[in-house]
Simulated assay, not measured.
Amino acid sequence: MTTATAPMIRRRGVMLVVSSPSGAGKTTLTRTLLERDHDVSLSISVTTRPARPGEIDGVHYHFITKDEFQGMITRGELLEHAHVYGHSYGTPRSAVEAALADGKDVLFDIDWQGAQQLRLAAEHDLVGIFILPPSLAELERRLRARAQDPEEVVQHRLAQVTNDVTHWAEYDYVLVNQDLETSMTALTAILIAERMKRRRNLGLAEFVEQFRRQPDLPS
């Protein structure tokens, strides 16, 4: 018995934008998705902040100077850019557009400011997901458990939550990240459904046409 192979229908890629208050689990979710789904690639942002321990230029971020960043803005080379916690971040345009045209899905781990700009630049390609923590107490616990930031930064991030969460309604989906596996199940289901949307499957008309052609009948 042979197993039928699903037909390959040409499609346009999905821009999967995931945002959250700091500490809600966004980074863990996006890293897990990348590990499990090899059809998704991470959009690598440019930033003016210095690299943290363990970060690699060109893998986690492209680390550039303020002058280089401003030059990219002037030349229109960024799909979005924002100033967050004293540093600038932006998404290079060319790599994203090439991936989408090639049917590749691109994952964005960015804040609500960047998501707003991306939606203006590419609304029909974008799917926005906002991640919420189960409670403020749990959010604070996660921030302190990371042990990456000094106390003043932790306090600043907690204070920023009040503003960040007001943007939840700007997203297509909202997930409360109680635990990793439940959230991953939901995230994966969203991506599968968005990949199957008719408007993204550019080769559907060509595929369906074969069923309209009448075969030659024996005389």
Rank of each mutant, 00 (worst) to 15 (best):
Y171K: 09
T65E: 13
I190Y: 04
I129G: 04
V46F: 12
A4L: 14
S45H: 05
E80P: 06
Q113P: 02
A115W: 05
E77P: 02
D111G: 14
R49K: 12
L126V: 10
A121G: 15
H167L: 06
L187R: 00
T30A: 03
E138P: 01
P50V: 15
A115D: 13
S183R: 00
A193H: 09
T30C: 08
A122L: 15
E35F: 00
K66N: 14
Q117S: 08
Q155A: 07
R52I: 08
S20L: 10
V106Q: 01
R146V: 01
G114D: 09
Y173A: 03
R157K: 09
K197W: 03
D37N: 01
W168P: 00
A99C: 02
T65C: 14
P92C: 07
L107Q: 02
E55F: 14
L29W: 02
T185V: 03
R31G: 00
P133D: 04
V127R: 02
Q178Y: 04
V127G: 09
E138H: 08
I56S: 14
R52N: 11
G25Q: 01
R52F: 12
T48L: 04
I56R: 15
D39F: 01
D125M: 11
S43W: 06
L217W: 02
T185Q: 05
Q214M: 09
L100A: 13
G23A: 05
F108N: 06
H87G: 00
D164F: 00
R199C: 10
A159L: 01
F108A: 06
A186R: 04
T48F: 07
G203K: 06
A121D: 11
L143K: 01
G114I: 05
S41C: 07
H167W: 09
R212P: 00
G23P: 01
F69Q: 02
G76H: 12
K66S: 15
E170S: 11
A121W: 13
M8I: 07
Q178H: 11
R36G: 02
T162V: 07
D125V: 07
S41N: 03
E97K: 13
T48S: 12
K66V: 15
W168Y: 13
V208R: 15
Q117A: 12
A6H: 06
A189I: 01
H62D: 06
P133W: 05
L136C: 00
P215V: 09
S43G: 14
E123K: 12
T162K: 13
A51I: 09
H38N: 00
Y173Q: 12
M1R: 15
A98G: 00
D109M: 06
N201Q: 14
E138Q: 12
D164H: 12
E206M: 11
Y171P: 03
H83A: 13
E35Q: 04
G86R: 01
K66F: 12
V96F: 08
S183W: 03
G71C: 09
T185G: 05
D102V: 00
P50F: 13
D57V: 09
R93V: 11
R141T: 01
R12W: 06
V46T: 11
E97P: 04
V127C: 14
P218D: 08
G128E: 10
E68T: 11
T162A: 15
V18N: 12
R12N: 10
F108G: 03
G23N: 02
S183G: 06
A101G: 08
A99I: 03
V17C: 14
L42H: 05
R12F: 05
